[in-house]
């Protein structure tokens, strides 16, 4: 399993043809207390860059983009009851949704962890 990062502060774990997507620790810290996550329906199909989810703090609602194209196979139901998971454990239990990857070539050019940490440090 390998983990990629985007410059939109999302992470992607790839396991076979399934990608798990969430937002990074840096992102959750910037957003503050998360109060609600609107997740995509199973079966929804996204092109890379489409609006896929919405994450809400008290004062702001931010769109989460599909980092790669694919079809949603599962959304993290735990976030509906416990949106705070995105704050407490953004890069593990606070994942958003899983996609069946349409085109693995889209993974090329994404950052690895080291590159992302460096990217964040430069912001």
């Amino acid at each position: 399993m390998s983990r990629y990062f985007t410059d939109e502060h999302e992470w992607i774990d790839v396991d076979g043809d399934i990608a798990t997507v969430g937002i990074t620790d840096y992102a959750q810290e910037q957003l503050g207390d998360i109060v609600f996550v609107e997740l995509p329906a199973e079966g929804a199909k996204f092109d890379k860059g489409d609006d896929a989810a919405v994450v809400e703090s008290v004062k702001a609602a931010s769109d989460v983009y599909a980092p790669i194209s694919g079809e949603v196979v599962e959304a993290n139901a735990a976030l509906e009851e416990e949106p705070a998971l995105v704050n407490s454990d953004p890069e593990e239990d606070g994942w958003f949704f899983k996609l069946r990857i349409a085109d693995t070539a889209e993974l090329e050019g994404l950052m690895d962890e080291a590159a992302y940490r460096k990217f964040v440090a430069g912001l």
């Binding site: 502060h9 703090s57 702001a60 931010s62």
Partner: peptide, 10 residues
């Protein structure tokens, strides 16, 4: 994702 933050403690 978009990063809308307002810096306003809630």
């Amino acid at each position: 994702m978009t990063m809308l933050k307002e810096g306003r403690p809630t």
